[in-house]
Simulated scan of single mutants.
Amino acid sequence: MDETKPWYQSRTIWGGVVALIAASAGYFGYDLDPGAHEALTNALISGAGAVGAVVAIYGRLAAKSTIG
């Protein structure tokens, strides 16, 4: 496992976020089934990737210096 990736592309991170959301939802009386866990994890990963792309494009367009 020599490849690196941004934290927001990690299924482990987003799985943990979903587990935290599910635990919090359970505390308030809502129940998420395993299918909903997977769907929510996939949606968060896709959304994070899209946000990362937008931030990268904006950063390049707003930069004050050239790439060397």
Rank of each mutant, 00 (worst) to 15 (best):
A50S: 12
P34N: 08
G29S: 09
A39C: 03
T41C: 07
G47P: 03
L61S: 14
M1L: 10
T66M: 11
A19N: 07
V54M: 06
A56G: 11
A39D: 14
E3H: 05
A50Q: 08
Y30W: 08
L32M: 13
Y30R: 11
V17I: 13
I21G: 03
G49M: 06
G59Y: 05
W14S: 04
T4F: 08
G16W: 01
S46Q: 05
M1C: 08
D31E: 14
I67N: 13
N42G: 03
A62W: 08
Y58N: 13
G52I: 02
T12A: 06
G26D: 12
T4E: 11
A50G: 09
L61N: 13
A25C: 08
T12V: 09
A36S: 11
I67E: 14
I13G: 01
D2T: 06
S46D: 12
D31L: 10
E3I: 06
G26I: 02
A36V: 12
T12N: 01
A63R: 14
A50C: 07
A19Y: 01
I45G: 00
I67Q: 13
A50I: 10
G59T: 12
G52K: 00
L20V: 09
D2N: 12
Q9N: 07
Y30F: 14
K5P: 04
L44K: 00
E38H: 03
K64T: 14
V55Y: 09
A48H: 01
V18Q: 01
G59E: 15
V18T: 04
I45Q: 02
A43D: 10
L61D: 14
R11D: 09
Y58L: 14
H37M: 10
W7N: 04
E3C: 04
L44F: 02
T66D: 15
M1K: 09
D2A: 09
T4R: 06
K5D: 10
F28R: 06
S46R: 02
G49A: 03
A39T: 13
P6L: 07
N42W: 00
F28C: 07
A25P: 08
A53E: 11
G59V: 12
A36L: 12
P6Q: 04
A53W: 05
S24H: 05
L44D: 00
S65P: 11
G26C: 02
D33S: 07
L32Q: 03
L61I: 15
A53G: 07
A63M: 06
V51L: 14
G16S: 05
A48T: 02
R11K: 03
T41Q: 10
Y8R: 00
S65T: 15
A22P: 00
L40W: 04
I13N: 02
E38Q: 12
G29T: 08
A48Y: 00
G15N: 03
G47N: 10
F28P: 04
A39E: 13
L32C: 02
